[in-house]
C-alpha cells in the first residue's frame, strides 16, 4: 500500500475498524482519499480495495454510483448549482447559465486554471435559500447573477477560506473515540 499518506493510513485503518465489517468503511475511505487528493485516484482506490477486502473493480463500481465521488480530477472548487424544483421556480437555471458563461465552461467541465468545476445539482436541501449553490458542499444562497459573481470573487481572493475547505474535505474534525463497546456476538469481520 503506497498511495495514502502515513497520517491518512492511520485514519483509514481506524475507519475500517469502527465498522463490524470493513467493507462498510468503503465510502468513508473514498471521502478520505478525496480529501487528500481532491479526487479519487486509481492508486487510492487500490489502497481502499485492500483495506476493505474487495477488488479494485468493486471500489470503482461502488464509488461511481455516488455523485460526490469523482474518479477524475476536478477543480479546486466544485460549484454545484441546484436546479431542482424549488430552486428552478426561483431562477436556478438563470444562475446556472450565468455560471457557465461567466466561468466560460459547461456543466461537468473545469476551468483551465483548475479552480472551478460546475455541476448541475439535484436538490441540495437548501430550498429556503433558493436558488442555492454549494461550493465544496458548503451552502450559499439565495443567489442571483451578481451574487454568484461576488461568490466567485470571494473564492478567488481567499476570503472564504475558513468556510470552504479544499474539495473533498467533509469534516475538519476527526472522530476521537474508537469503538469501545464489544457487543456480544458481533458480526465477524
Amino acid at each position: 500500500m503506497a498511495h495514502l499518506s502515513e497520517e491518512n493510513l492511520v485514519r483509514a485503518r481506524r475507519l475500517a475498524e469502527i465498522y463490524p465489517k470493513s467493507r462498510s468503511a468503503l465510502i468513508p475511505l473514498c471521502h478520505l482519499a478525496q480529501a487528500q487528493d481532491g479526487y479519487l485516484s486509481e492508486e487510492a482506490m487500490e489502497d481502499i480495495a485492500e483495506l476493505c477486502g474487495v477488488s479494485p473493480a468493486e471500489v470503482y463500481g461502488t464509488a461511481s454510483f455516488y455523485d460526490m465521488l469523482h474518479t477524475e480530477p476536478v477543480g479546486r472548487y466544485v460549484v454545484a448549482v441546484c436546479t431542482n424544483i424549488a430552486c428552478m421556480l426561483n431562477g436556478a437555471y438563470e444562475v446556472l447559465e450565468h455560471a457557465e458563461s461567466s466561468l466560460g465552461i459547461g456543466v461537468g467541465q473545469t476551468t483551465d486554471d483548475g479552480l472551478f468545476t460546475i455541476e448541475d445539482a439535484e436538490c441540495l436541501a437548501g430550498c429556503d435559500l433558493a436558488p442555492c449553490v454549494q461550493v465544496n458542499h458548503r451552502f450559499f444562497g439565495p443567489l442571483d447573477a451578481a451574487g454568484f459573481d461576488g461568490l466567485v470573487a470571494d473564492l478567488r481572493s481567499g476570503a472564504l477560506a475558513d468556510i470552504v475547505p479544499a474539495h473533498g474535505v467533509l469534516s475538519r474534525v476527526d472522530r476521537s473515540n474508537g469503538l469501545e463497546v464489544d457487543p456480544v456476538g458481533d458480526v465477524a469481520r
Binding site: 460526490m68 436541501a125 458542499h137 458548503r138 474534525v173 463497546v181 457487543p183
Partner: peptide, 24 residues
C-alpha cells in the same frame, strides 16, 4: 440495539462535521 449508525447525507458537510464533533 447493540450498535447505532447515523447516516448523514454527504452534502451536509458542515452538519456532518458538527455531528462528529457532537459524537466526540
Amino acid at each position: 440495539a447493540t450498535k447505532a449508525f447515523i447516516f448523514c447525507r454527504g452534502e451536509f458537510a458542515l452538519g456532518f462535521e458538527r455531528l462528529i464533533q457532537a459524537c466526540n
